[in-house]
Amino acid sequence: MKSVTEVNHPLVQHKMTLLRRKETSVLEFRQLLREIGWFLGAEATKDLKLIDEPIETPVTSMVGKKLDGKKVCLISILRAGDGLIQPMLDLIPSARIGVIGLARDEETLMPTKYCFKVPKDLENRVTIVVDPMLATAGSAIFALDEIKKAGAKDIRFISLVSSPEGVKALHDRHPDVPLITAAIDDHLNEAGYIVPGLGDAGDRIFGTKGV
C-alpha cells in the first residue's frame, strides 16, 4: 500500500464538494461523510489477507475467499473520528472498536490523553485509525505513538481532508503508516485550519457552533 493515497474517485470529488459547502446541513454532512467513508474504508482494506473457504452454493460447490486472521480494529480519535466509525462498520460489521481522547494542554499546547480504550491484542490485528481532519498532525502523531505503545504493528490512518504540512509531519514521524485521504488541500492558515477545508469537522458532525 502506498504511503499516501488520495482517493479521487469522481463520486468522492462530487460528494466532497457538497460536503465542503458552508450551507450543507448537519444531516446532509453526516450522510455525505458516511458515503465518502465507504470509499476510504474500501481503499484502506484492499490488501487484507484472504484464505480459501470451500462452500456450497444453491447450484454447485466452489472455493470462495474469506478474511484471514483476527478482526480488524477501528480506533477513533475523539470526538470527530466517530463520524468515520459508522461507514467503517458498514464495511466491517464485526470490527473491534477502540477510542483515544485527546485534549490540548493550555500551558504546553501539546496533546494530552484523557481516554484510551483499545483491544489488548492489537499486535495481531490490522488497526485503522480515523480522524476527519489531518491539519498540523499533532493529534494524529500523538495517537499513533500511543497506539504503537499498545502493541499495534499494522496500522493505517484515514482522514477526510489533509494539509500538505500534516501529511509531511505524519510521515516524518510514522513513515510506516499509510495515509488514506479524500483530499490534500492547499495549506494551513495562521489559526491552524486547513484551506480551503470545510471548517471544524467535529462541529459540523455534532451540530455545535464552529467555523
Rank of each mutant, 00 (worst) to 15 (best):
S94I: 09
P93F: 01
D185R: 02
S61M: 06
L78K: 00
F206K: 02
G64T: 09
G166Y: 09
A42W: 07
G199Q: 12
V167R: 02
E106G: 03
S139A: 13
G81D: 03
Q86M: 11
H187M: 12
E56N: 08
A42I: 14
E146I: 01
Q31K: 14
K120F: 14
K66D: 01
V129E: 02
V161A: 05
P58F: 07
N124Q: 06
H174Y: 13
Y193L: 05
L91V: 06
V118W: 02
K153L: 11
C73D: 03
T127E: 01
K71V: 06
T24H: 10
A150N: 07
L19F: 07
R173A: 15
K149S: 07
K120W: 13
V129G: 03
A103P: 05
K49V: 12
D68A: 10
T57N: 11
P10H: 06
K113Q: 11
G166V: 07
A183Q: 09
T24N: 14
S139C: 05
I158G: 10
F116R: 00
L170K: 01
R96K: 15
K2E: 12
G138W: 00
E43L: 11
L48W: 08
I158M: 05
A44C: 12
I77D: 00
K46G: 03
I158F: 10
